[in-house]
């Protein structure tokens, strides 16, 4: 109760923060927001479960084709590098939250900027080095897929099987949906950066930063599963 004497004008926004009127206190509000975020994340997990289920079923139905198609169409080096990029960005988000908890806005700023750069690197690699070449070679999902003889020669003997299109369908919709999540995440992180620059995050209030962080981690976790499934095995 020592800081009661200071007028609220001198305080930063996060120090002046009062919870919405239907909450009993700020702690309940933050806790409730976090629970809401976890519920939302569970819907994300189940949303991606659809892709994983389709993957599992078709891999079971066409096991041989699956492994070969994976090696033929996808480059594990790009996927692997992107995995590392996302892991790094997850770590920097953790540090950004630590910055808010320990009242070091500069730490939060720097780490958020690194995270956003990581998100952009991920997307640029994805678009420029994966989606674009595939688009050019007609390696498109399902019925739009077209075989090109020259790519068979390049493949060192591998003749694309008749169910490559299904593999590519799952690749496109799963990574596409994931990519959209990365893009949304980048926007959310930028929003957090803007709020942090205006001084809205501090030890007593960093709810939205924490929740955006949780969202970013789930995007990372989904990639942790997508990477080996699509690129490696």
């Amino acid at each position: 109760m020592t800081h009661v004497s200071t007028s609220t004008e001198d305080l930063k926004p996060h120090e002046r923060y009062v919870p919405a009127s239907h909450w009993r206190n700020a702690y309940d509000e933050a806790d409730g927001a976090k629970l809401g975020m976890w519920l939302f994340l569970s819907t994300e997990i189940l949303l991606f479960a659809g892709f994983f289920c389709a993957y599992a079923v078709f891999r079971m139905l066409y096991p041989g084709v699956w492994a070969d198609a994976s090696h033929y169409y996808l480059d594990w080096r790009i996927g692997g590098f992107n995995t590392l990029v996302l892991l790094l960005s997850s770590f920097t988000v953790v540090l950004a939250i630590r910055g808010a908890q320990t009242n070091r806005p500069a730490m939060t700023n720097i780490n958020l900027i690194i995270t956003i750069i990581c998100a952009l690197v991920f997307l640029v690699l994805k678009l420029g080095w994966e989606y674009y070449p595939k688009w050019v070679h007609d390696e498109l999902p399902g019925g739009n897929f077209a075989y090109h003889s020259h790519s068979i020669l390049e493949a060192g003997g591998y003749v694309p099987g008749s169910h490559d299109n299904i593999f590519l369908s799952i690749y496109w919709i799963a990574t596409g949906t994931h990519g959209v999540h990365v893009l949304i995440g980048a926007f959310l992180l930028t929003w957090c950066l803007w709020l942090n620059m205006k001084g809205f995050y501090g030890p007593k209030h960093y709810t939205s930063l924490e929740n955006v962080g949780l969202y970013w981690h789930i995007v990372d976790i989904i990639w942790i599963f997508l990477f080996p499934l699509l690129y490696l095995v």
Binding site: L46, Y62, P141, G142, G143, N165, I173, T177
Partner: peptide, 30 residues
């Protein structure tokens, strides 16, 4: 919360199927 997202992804796949012919549910292309 636990069931509706699966409907979401199902219907999204159906829309992709109708607009982009992704073939996940189409036996003609596997």
């Amino acid at each position: 919360v636990l069931a509706t997202p699966v409907l979401g992804i199902t219907l999204l796949m159906l829309v992709f199927e109708r607009t982009m012919n992704i073939g996940i549910f189409d036996p003609a292309i596997g």
